[in-house]
Design a protein around this nucleic acid. Structure first.
Lengths: 199, 199
DNA sequence: CGCCTTTCCTAGGACTCCTAGGAATATACA
DNA sequence: TGTATATTCCTAGGAGTCCTAGGAAAGGCG
């Protein structure tokens, strides 16, 4: 009998596909072994435990999404870049819900440093070049972008927008418009720094 | 031998405390039974299954957080209301990480309708009265607020802000400033509607 | 006091995670 | 080519969780 040809890479890839199909919490060592035609105990020469399996999915997803983000960003600047990147982010989450969920697991510091997490914040900083923000505002803006993207996608995935006629796509477009305006009118120092409104 | 006095309410409360202590994924029927001094099989006269246990924690948390939000909102308007509500939200998540995580599980439509989820969006709409937005902009703005709050808290909880000197509190304050400015300068119609920047 | 409902029990099956130790297969090197 | 070594995969089994079935004790009610 030939060997099944299990490698860590193929394992992570299969786990990611499984996660997209049935949800991350159903990504189990046993089920994965079943898909490779192998006994579950055999997988423990490749992975430490079930948790590490999910971590590998997270790392895989971070890298994939970073690639998509980079492709979306290429040749764009300003609001164009912002929208393209945001759509890449949301599109990936729609296409790969399990991988996206996996991205939310907390990585230990070493794994986090070896992951593509840094590329993500670097790309957001690249977007912000179109808005000329100095530190520490740049860091704050990166966190605003990350929070808004992740928050929207997360709520959408949890079905939070289903119970209302207004479509999620329209809201998403409006949120991006608003982010663009907010970044251009970034509050300069303490409190308010703008005109209009509040009679 | 007297009975243990298990009720659905005490069960949900204990599950919520357990979730805050050890994380939602470790909230198990067996562990809960152990804490009540009862065999695990005994709990199935009170709950349908393990998943429903987590759903009950979610419903409990939604109600608690709605109460806090309402208290924070009382007597405030405009940016004051925005900041107070946002801080209530973030504070609850910090205080009750397990409950907060539970809030993210997807509820079936009936449960969702019976939950305090509606109160949450109502309160956000109340905040927006200080910014005079008509539909559908109001719905979009509610989604922006929800996304930003949840996204920030979620990333913070996942340790996403630890690897940078800039404190999360400062960024949070800045994010709220920015939201306030964004709501006051809400982009009126198609695309841009503002001055400044983009040379 | 006897009846009925609810709560809790024992028993057990199915599944997952993971370890230990051994067998089979591929690879490297003489 | 043949043999040593490393890796992959196996069987066996323990521990833990989820959940069902059916029965026994505890409390409430006529």
């Amino acid at each position: 009998m030939a060997r099944a040809g299990v490698t860590v890479e193929r394992l992570a890839e299969a786990a990611a596909e499984l996660a997209d199909e049935v949800g991350l919490e159903k990504v189990t060592v046993s089920e994965l072994a079943r898909r490779f035609g192998v006994k579950d105990a055999s997988l423990y020469s490749h992975i430490r435990n079930a948790h590490q399996l999910r971590v590998r999915v997270a790392v895989l997803a971070l890298a994939e999404l970073a690639d998509r983000g980079a492709a979306a960003l290429a040749g764009r600047a300003g609001k164009d870049a912002l929208v393209a990147f945001a759509n890449a982010y949301r599109g990936y989450a729609k296409e790969h819900p399990g991988r996206y969920t996996a991205m939310q697991v907390e990585l230990d510091p070493e794994t986090a440093k070896a992951s593509a997490a840094r590329r993500h914040s670097d790309m957001m900083r690249a977007i912000l070049r179109g808005y000329s923000l100095a530190e520490p505002d740049q860091t704050d803006a990166v966190r605003l972008l990350g929070s808004t993207f992740h928050g929207f996608v997360s709520l959408e995935q949890a079905g939070g927008f289903h119970h209302h006629p207004r479509g999620a796509d329209e809201s998403w477009g409006r949120v991006l418009d608003t982010l663009d305006v907010a970044l251009r009118n970034w509050p300069t120092h303490e409190g308010d720094a703008d005109a209009s409104s509040t009679p």
